[in-house]
Amino acid sequence: MVSIPGRRQKKRRKEVIKRAAAIGAAPGVLVADPQAEASVFSVIGIGGGRGEYHQGVSLDDALARRAAWPLFWLDCSGLADIEAIRRIGAEFSLHPLALEDVVTTDQRPKCEIQADHAFFVMRMLDRAGDGEQLSVFFGDGFVLTFQERPGDSFAPVRERIAKGAPRLHAGRADYLAYALIDAVVDAYFPVVESQVARIEGLEDDILATVDEDQVPELHAVRREMLGLKRWLRPTRDALGTLLRLDRPWLHAETKAYFGDVQDHVDQLIDTNDTYRDTASGLIDLHMTLSAAKTNEVINLLTIISTIFIPLGFLAGVWGMNFNPELSRWNMPLTQSPYGYPLALGVMAAIAAGLLAYFRRRRWL
């Protein structure tokens, strides 16, 4: 995947302008992004060893199903419907500041704890490496997820629910939240592996031959890996907050699973940092090899010039117009029948002598 820096920078500038326009607004005020996609609701109910999945339902229909299931998962894809998001907040007693963070989609990954639920924010990636904000609320008997747009990393979790996975059908919201967060973290691995493959390929290309297009590609992948670092490190800290949490709706067994997710994030961070440093080293290597190649060309041109300087001098001297009949000291060899081959022989001997000298000094 090759990023397009110009487009991403434009997008960042738009976000800054949007946030600047909201300066001074009261805390907890929900304002939809004008470019936000329409909200689509889906619901999964789990209990009694079975699960039920409904996609594209109205919010009224979704909330009406809550009482029928011990574990209720409501997913909102698209954040344009502010009234619906506000209603969900009222239904589940979500803090207004947390709802503001849901619709302000430039949040740093974090975990906030309330008395009866946890609020977890992270970045969800697709295989192209594009990220969107994912907000997860979970407490006793419910899990809520808010995405910027349809299309997520939750397909494996939905399949496990459909197949009757015992742990997911046990009806514990903390385990379902773990499964969702783990699926999002697992989606980072193909992206990181793709970047690793790009860097290793660029390393082989640079060692084979230096090309001017390699440095922009290295800068692009390094910038992407810096972005991953900006998302992964706070995600690890947020998981640490969950591991230290003592609430009745977060079981000790589930904490062990969250610890496993944290180990995966640490692995991603280590790989990302290692190959980001490798990319920086390859940029330095590219500059070194480019300079060496330039010096090699300059050395060759210098040697060629050095060889032709005396030859050009001799040709210039013999090319001067003097009358040899006026003096025997005017232009020797010009009247000799062997003058031309002798002159060429002298020039060839000088060139051969210079080449031998350069080889002896290891300049060739």
Rank of each mutant, 00 (worst) to 15 (best):
R236P: 08
L285T: 11
E224R: 08
F258L: 15
S290Q: 07
V261A: 15
R244K: 14
F258D: 10
L268N: 06
M287S: 04
L250T: 09
V297Y: 00
K293H: 11
L226E: 06
R236E: 14
V265L: 05
Y275K: 05
A291G: 13
A279M: 00
L285D: 07
D246L: 04
L228A: 10
T235M: 13
L289W: 01
L243C: 09
W231A: 13
G259D: 13
Q262E: 13
V265F: 01
T302W: 01
L268Q: 10
H286S: 12
M287T: 07
D270C: 04
M287C: 05
G281C: 02
L268R: 04
N272S: 11
D277S: 09
L239E: 04
V261H: 01
D284P: 00
T278H: 11
R276M: 04
L285V: 10
A292C: 00
R230W: 01
D270F: 05
Y257K: 02
H264F: 00
E253T: 14
M287R: 07
D263R: 12
H264V: 05
G259R: 15
I304K: 12
R230Y: 06
T235Q: 15
N295K: 03
Q262K: 15
I269G: 06
I269W: 03
L300T: 15
H251M: 14
D266G: 09
R236Y: 09
I269M: 08
T302N: 06
Q267G: 13
R247G: 01
M287N: 06
D266P: 01
N299R: 15
D277P: 09
V261Y: 05
G259T: 10
V265Y: 07
K229P: 09
E224M: 11
Y275Q: 03
D237E: 14
I303P: 04
D277A: 13
D273P: 05
K255L: 02
E253C: 03
T278F: 07
R247Q: 11
D273H: 05
D237W: 02
L285Y: 11
T288L: 04
D270P: 02
K293M: 03
Q262R: 15
V297W: 00
D270M: 04
D266W: 03
L242S: 01
L232H: 07
G227R: 07
K255G: 08
R230L: 10
G240Y: 06
L226V: 14
D260G: 08
P234W: 03
S290R: 12
R236Q: 13
T274W: 00
T274D: 01
G227C: 02
R276T: 00
L268S: 05
T274L: 11
M225W: 10
D237Y: 03
A279C: 04
T278A: 11
I269V: 12
F258Q: 11
A291Y: 00
L226R: 10
L268C: 10
G227W: 04
I298M: 14
E224L: 12
G281Q: 04
L268E: 04
I269L: 08
P248S: 11
K255V: 09
E224T: 07
T241H: 08
I298D: 06
W231Y: 15
L268A: 12
Q267P: 02
Y257R: 02
D246H: 13
G227I: 05
R236N: 09
E224V: 11
H286W: 07
N299K: 15
V265I: 13
H264C: 03
D260N: 09
I304Q: 01
G259S: 14
T235F: 01
R276N: 01
N272Q: 02
W249Y: 15
A279P: 02
L250R: 07
L242W: 09
I303N: 08
S280E: 10
